[in-house]
Design a protein around this nucleic acid. Structure first.
Lengths: 209, 209
DNA sequence: TCACAAACCGACCGTTCGGTCAGCATATTG
DNA sequence: CAATATGCTGACCGAACGGTCGGTTTGTGA
């Protein structure tokens, strides 16, 4: 599958793999080096041979996760022929799908956002989110330029809402399916479609003009 | 101010206060009982005298935070005279304001959602979010019943999006202000107004009917 | 004033933490 | 074959962890 990290030894790759799983599910502080070593079948000292510290290991894990999640998003098909609105919808749908397909990468970034956003907010913004967000903004701006989106709408706000609706869904998944009266908890497709339509057409009944 | 926990000793109240601040900012695992004791000016043994364990202390803190954040939301003014749309907008605005005013409670719940949503998703849904969410759904449903909201819209989805837009803003605040081209990062009021208008009227230019 | 319970504390416990180190195994290279 | 470098490990370290214990102080009702 993935030929990244091909220059690392088998033990190092195993370590990275296991560390990603554990860090993603429990967060940095709740995972011990002992646990990683044991579950990866390597010695703890071996981990410190390949990574200079626990922080270093976490950063390496985070890096690969960011790279993966970014690349998964960047290979969007550039069929400029189809309508910008359709492209927006396609992005919206596949974005949520990617989040759900790569829960580990997504959760890892979420942890980092939670634990270190205050100090490293700038770094996170620049190195992780900026590119992805910019491409979404561009997508929306194109649609606006071609007259498919109202002229008075802030494109970055719309892009932000599109991404946010997906991320929020990802975050609250586990709780959402226990909420009474919620029909869209189980079906991401259903959710995507309904949200996009709502955002596109609005909820207000009589648009007074 | 708050007369809750009046049956607790001074040390216990101090402990709760300090623990809430620390847990909210760093999460459960990154906060030690020593740190709490030291910062509260009480002995560690004293904490264990009042709370049976670290988990017990955290649960007590979480409980008060949930109570506070719920009560802050429930005392919405019931001026049924004004338009349901205005009431929706008022809720939306003041909800975000409450989140930003009580960052500790909000972050605490966010931590819990992050760390334990899988196992305790049901409990969280029932005891923390259900009431608040239900009241928002009710608000939207009223507006729909009175013909201010399109009939084909899922009221729980719209309520979910309203809450989600606010929570997502709260979560990404620190990163958002470092994103290029984002104008709404600094002003919650601006954000609220723009999002509500977008949701109400939709972004699509020509609503074909 | 006395007795009893609750509040409180310093010292300590076993365990686990992140991290180090000296040395063994293995493969590459001259 | 010797030499060198790298992958790898068990044993170990000081520090910090959550939690306990015996005993002292303090408040309270009789």
């Amino acid at each position: 599958m993935q030929r990244q990290n091909k220059d690392l030894s088998k033990a190092a790759r195993l370590t990275l793999e296991v560390a990603e799983t554990l860090f993603a599910s429990k967060g940095f502080n709740a995972v011990s080096m002992n646990a990683i070593a044991q579950q990866a079948g390597v010695s703890k000292a071996n981990i410190f041979h390949h990574f200079k510290s626990k922080q270093g290991l976490f950063m390496a894990v985070l890096k690969t996760a960011c790279r993966r999640s970014a690349s998964a998003l960047h290979k969007r098909d550039d069929l400029t022929a189809i309508s910008p609105l359709v492209r927006m919808h396609d992005f919206f749908t596949s974005h949520l799908q990617k989040l759900l397909e790569q829960p580990e990468s997504t959760r890892l970034i979420q942890w980092e956002l939670m634990e270190n956003s205050e100090q490293r907010g700038k770094q996170l913004a620049e190195e992780v989110f900026a590119d992805t967000f910019a491409s979404v903004v561009e997508l929306v701006a194109e649609a606006q330029a071609q007259g498919f989106v109202k002229a008075d709408i802030d494109v970055s706000l719309l892009a932000y809402l599109l991404v946010g609706a997906n991320v929020f869904f990802f975050e609250t998944r586990a709780v959402l399916k226990h909420m009474p009266g919620v029909s869209f908890a189980d079906s991401a497709e259903h959710y995507s479609a309904a949200v996009f339509q709502l955002l596109a057409e609005g909820f207000e009944k009589s648009t007074s003009i």
